[in-house]
Amino acid sequence: MPEQIAMREAFGQTLVALGKRVPDLVVLDADVAPSTRAVLFAQAFPERFFQVGIAEQNMIGMAAGLSTLGFIPFTSTFACFAKRDLDQIRITVAQPKNNVKVTGHYSGLLAGKTGKTHLSIQDLAIMRTMPNMTVIAPADGVEVEKAMEAMVAVHGPAYLRLARDPSPVIFDASYRFEIGRAVTLRDGSDVALISTGIQTPRAVEAAGLLQAEGINALVLHVPTLKPLDVDAIVAAAERTGLVVTAEEHSILGGLGGAVAEVLSEHRPTPMARVGVRDVYAESAPNDALLEKYGVTARHVAQAARSHLAKWRR
C-alpha cells in the first residue's frame, strides 16, 4: 500500500505553515473547522481566524471585504455548501477579481455515508464557468500543499477542491506545481488517460492494469481545470489518438467536458469519459460508491479497453 494522506490534513497543516510566512493570510470558517482541519490554523493564529457560524453567504462577503484591505482570505466549508454562496462568489469575488481563496472540502464521493445532499459532483463544472476564477483539484496531499502555496503567490479568485478521506500519495516533496500546468505522469502511445483530483492515483493504477495486458497508456494529470493546459491535452491526444478522461465528478462540465471542448476545437479525438453519469449518488461506504458510480481504477481501465476495441479494431 502506498502512503496515504487526507487532503484536509494537508490543508490544515499548510494553512499553519503559510500563516507563519504570510501575515496577511486569514481564514474564515462556516462551522466546519474541525472537519476541514482549518482548526489547526485557528489554534495557531486565533486573531486571524474568523468563525462566521453556519452562514456561507455572509462568509464569502466578509472574505471579499477583508481582501480589499490586502488580506488573503481562505474560506472553509464543504464543496456541497460552497455552492450555496455562488452568487456571492460571482458578485463580490469573481467579478471584481478579489483575492479570495474558496476551498470546497468533502468533494466527490469520498464523504460516503453523508448521502446525495453532501456529495459534491458538480463543483468543478460550476466554478469553471466563472470568468476570472482559477480552479484547482489536487491529486494528493503533497499537491494540496504545493497548490495552496501557488494560490497565495498569485493575486486573484481561486477555488480549491479537496477530498475528505486519506488517499494515496503519488508526488514527493520535489514535485513542482504550477497553476495552469498539467503533468505527464506516465508516457504511453496506445491511449491517453487524462485525469484530475483524487481520480489521478486511480488513473495511474489503471495504467498499471492495462500495462499487464500490453496496453501502453499515457497518464496526464490536470490539476488546474482553469486555466486549462490546452497544449498538454492536445499533445496527449496527438501522441495516442485516443483519450479517456477520469474524474470523481459528473461527466458533465468538469474535466471530461473541458477536454472535449479543447479537443473538438483543436484536435478532434475519440473520447470516453469516466465519471459520475448524470445522476445524484447516495449514502454508502466509500468503496461501494466508487464501485457503483463507476470511478474505480478498474472502471478507468475498462473504459480504455472498450475505447480501444471500438476505435482500433
Partner: peptide, 19 residues
C-alpha cells in the same frame, strides 16, 4: 465594493470593519 445582487453589501462591510 461591487454590488447589485441584493442583500450582499453588509457582509463585505463586516470584512472591511474587521480588517
Amino acid at each position: 465594493m461591487s454590488s447589485g445582487s441584493l442583500g450582499q453589501g453588509l457582509s463585505p462591510g463586516i470584512g472591511m470593519a474587521l480588517g
